[in-house]
Nucleic acid binder design. Structure first.
Lengths: 235, 235
DNA sequence: AGAGATCGTATTGTATGCGATTATTGAAGA
DNA sequence: TCTTCAATAATCGCATACAATACGATCTCT
C-alpha cells in the first residue's frame, strides 16, 4: 500500500510534477530527462513518465527526439517570438470577451489579486512571478471558455520557460499598474481599449524582458560562468 | 518483416490513422474505442494506441474516461461555441499577420486552391469539405508561425467533428466567394479588413451550418432513421 | 600518441502480463 | 414478466520484459 490513488491520477501527478519542475527551473532548459531516473524518483514506471513526456512535448515544454529521449525544451528566439505573438492574440481575445461582462465578484477577485501582486513586488522571489502569471490565467478562466483557458495556460507555461532563458535576471515581468488599468477598462466595458491595453501590456513584457536583438549577443557573457567554474580568468 | 519503420513513426501513424478516421467519420462521434480491438486492427500493441488516445484527447477528438476507456468525442453545443470562438480569434490573427506580407507565389497558390474549391463545389463529396478546410490551414502555414499553425489545425479538426454532429447535411461549409474576397484583402494589405472578412466568414460558417439553437430540436428527427431501419412507420 | 574499430552498457521503443475495475450474462426470486 | 444479484467475461491502468538503438570505453594498428 504505497498510496494507491484513483486511476489515471498518478499519471497526471507525474505530468504536473514535471511541469512545475520545468517552469520553476528545477529542471533547467536543455537538461536531459532519462525515463527511468525520473520514474524511480517519482515512484512510477517509465510508462507513466513517457505519457507525461508526450503531453509536455505537445505543450512545448520538453523536446522529444527519437531514440534520444526527452530533454527540457530550449526554445529558439524564433519560437519564442511565435509564442509571444500567439499569446498576444489569445489574450486580446480574452480581454474582448471579458469587457463589460465582468461580475462584481470577479472584479473584486481581480483587484484582490492585484493587491497581492503589489505586496509581493519588491521581493524578487518566485512569488512575484507566479502571481503575475496567475493574473492572466484568472482572466482566461473568467471567460468561461475552456479551450481559450487551455491555450492561455499553455502559452503562459512556455513564456515562463522562455523568460527563464532569454529574460533579464528578474524584470518582475508584469507591471502591476498595467494590470490595474486593464481591470478598469474591463469594468467600463470598453472592449477595444481593454484589448489594446492587453496587447501593449504583453508587448511591454517582451521588451522589459528583453526578447529583442540580444540572444547571441555576446559570446563572452555566455562563456564567463564556465570560465570561472574552471578557475580560468577571462581577460 | 511486416514493415518495421523508423522508431516513433508507428506511434504517429496510429495517431494519424485515428485522427483521419474520426474526422472523416469512419469513427462516429460517441463511438467506443477499445484499445486492443484497435491495436489489433492497426497491427500495434495497446501501448501505442493508448499513446495516440492521449494525444487525441488533448486535441479534443476523443474523450477519455478513467477506467472506462476512450470514445470519439461528442462535443456539447457549449464546447462547440467555445471552439468556434477561439477559432475566429486565431484566424483573425492569421489574417492580420498575413495582410500585406503575402508573396506573389503565395497569393498564386491560394488562388489556385480556390479554383480547385470552385471545381469541387457542386459535388457534395467529402472533397469539397476537405478543400475548404485546407484553405484555412494553408493560410496558417503561410504565417510562418508554427504554434499558430498548430492551434489552427487543432481547432479545424474539432470544427470538423462539430459540424459532423450539429451541421446541416452538407452546407458546403465555406463559401468560395468569401475566400476570394479574403485573398484580395490580404493582397491589398488592409489588415483590418482582412481580419474582419475572416471573422465574418467564420461567423457565416457557423450560421450556415446552423450551430444556432437547434441541437435537441426535435426528437422525432433523431429517431426517424432508426424507425425506418426497423421497418417501423413514423406517423 | 592519435585515429579508428569493437565491444559493453545505458537508454529508448514496443509488446506483453497481471491485478483491478467495469460491463454482461444468466439464473433465481418476487 | 420484471427485478436483483452473482458469476463470468471484457477492458483498463500500470508495471515489467524484451528488442533495438545510441553512447562510451577499451583496444588495436599505424
Amino acid at each position: 500500500m504505497t498510496e494507491s490513488r484513483a486511476p489515471g491520477l498518478r499519471a497526471q501527478s507525474v505530468y504536473r510534477a514535471l511541469r512545475r519542475a520545468i517552469i520553476e527551473q528545477a529542471l533547467k532548459p536543455g537538461m536531459k530527462l532519462p525515463e527511468d531516473t525520473i520514474g524511480e524518483q517519482l515512484g512510477v514506471s517509465r510508462t507513466l513518465v513517457r505519457e507525461a513526456f508526450g503531453r509536455l512535448a505537445i505543450e512545448g515544454l520538453v523536446e522529444l527526439k527519437p531514440n534520444k529521449g526527452a530533454s527540457v525544451a530550449y526554445p529558439t528566439l524564433e519560437e519564442a517570438r511565435d509564442v509571444f505573438d500567439v499569446r498576444r492574440g489569445l489574450e486580446r481575445q480574452v480581454a474582448e470577451s471579458l469587457a463589460g461582462r465582468l461580475t462584481a465578484a470577479q472584479a473584486a477577485e481581480l483587484e484582490e489579486h492585484v493587491r497581492l501582486e503589489e505586496r509581493a513586488h519588491g521581493q524578487d522571489g518566485p512569488e512575484s512571478i507566479r502571481l503575475a502569471g496567475e493574473f492572466h490565467i484568472k482572466l482566461a478562466e473568467m471567460t468561461g471558455n475552456a479551450l481559450l483557458l487551455r491555450y492561455v495556460q499553455e502559452v503562459s507555461s512556455r513564456c515562463s520557460l522562455i523568460l527563464a532563458i532569454y529574460g533579464r535576471p528578474h524584470s518582475s515581468d508584469c507591471a502591476v499598474s498595467e494590470h490595474r488599468q486593464l481591470i478598469e477598462a474591463l469594468r467600463s466595458g470598453d472592449g477595444a481599449r481593454a484589448a489594446s491595453l492587453m496587447d501593449h501590456h504583453l508587448q511591454a513584457v517582451v521588451t522589459r524582458a528583453l526578447l529583442t536583438p540580444r540572444g547571441e549577443r555576446d559570446i563572452r557573457d555566455l562563456l564567463a560562468p564556465y570560465a570561472l567554474s574552471e578557475g580560468l580568468n577571462p581577460s
